[in-house]
Amino acid sequence: MTDGDRFPPGTRVRTFPHDPAHHTRLPRYARGKRGVVVEPEGPAELADISAQGRGDAPVEQIYAVRFAARDLWGEGDHHVVLNLWESYLEEDPDRDR
């Protein structure tokens, strides 16, 4: 999907906990973490596949996702915003907690 409507602004998402054996743009500090979608940033080729020199990298929506420092580091009062490809994200399964 590239139209940016899978995760509307405000959606509570969780990043995948994957530790892939290849290039990726999901930093380890933000893996398996809960955040909130700010808004879609626009589509781009998935860096993980493009980095392998393949011509078949899928184009995916990128989302700006806001994380509370407490959820990333267990402490802190700031926020961190990352730009994450759609396949790095799923809707937070515990969003109603």
Binding site: R25, L26, P27, G42, A44, I62, R66, V80, V81, N83
Partner: peptide, 10 residues
């Protein structure tokens, strides 16, 4: 404070 980590194309 918000820290913007430029992890994609923006």
């Amino acid at each position: 404070i918000t820290v913007w980590d430029s992890s994609a194309e923006s």
